[in-house]
């Protein structure tokens, strides 16, 4: 932007350039028209600020999945077609999955219920309760304190300690192929 008044030569080249652009660019032409009529430029519509969404690193997700597979054959279980088997057969395999995955959850995560009350109990949520930790359902009207029935206690991870991994370790290999020699 020019702070001082443009001189004649500058004004001449500007007029010639504007002449060309008014003929060829309709946006530019309408802006010049507005200037000529003495209208002010419409305010630029501010884009609403983007909600702060972030990408999470897939590394720890893959690492946890590898642990669940290693200890509890989790991926094998989910990827298998259970329709072909009887409940007893699925139940036998489920013990492997349950025992192993439970070990992983207990070894690497520290979990506790969000609410300590017994499910089915009446409880009261004061104003300012943490909406991320307690979800309201059903007849959600009025103002807090809210009184309702605890349907699910919720789970909260209060700690997670995953194994440290080597710099170049490929976490995408959830379970290596095994070749017996």
């Amino acid at each position: 932007m020019y702070d001082s008044q443009p001189d004649f030569f500058t004004r001449l080249t500007l007029a010639l350039r504007a002449f060309g652009r008014i003929l060829t660019q309709s946006d530019f032409a309408s802006d010049v028209l507005r200037l000529d009529r003495g209208e002010s430029r419409p305010p630029v519509v501010e884009e609403p600020p983007k909600p702060p969404l972030r990408e999470t690193s897939p590394d720890s997700a893959l690492q946890l999945l590898a642990l669940l597979q290693q200890e509890g054959r989790f991926v094998d279980f989910l990827e298998e077609n259970v329709a072909a088997y009887s409940d007893a057969e699925i139940g036998g395999a489920a013990r492997v999955v349950h025992e192993g995955c439970r070990k992983v959850i207990h070894d690497y995560l520290h979990l506790e219920p969000v609410r300590t009350e017994v499910e089915g109990a009446q409880l009261t949520l004061p104003a300012g309760f943490d909406a991320a930790a307690v979800r309201l359902t059903g007849n959600v009207v009025g103002q807090p304190p809210f009184t309702g029935t605890l349907m699910h206690r919720g789970w909260r991870a209060t700690g997670i300690t995953l194994p440290k991994i080597a710099e170049s370790h490929d976490v995408r290999v959830l379970a290596p192929a095994e070749v017996e020699l």
């Binding site: 094998d76 259970v82 072909a84 395999a93």
Partner: peptide, 18 residues
């Protein structure tokens, strides 16, 4: 108490001994 020997291959349900 149940003892389960998981299959070695990726077919967990089919190959598991119970």
């Amino acid at each position: 108490a149940p003892v389960v020997v998981p299959s070695r291959g990726s077919k967990l349900i089919g190959g598991t001994l119970r």
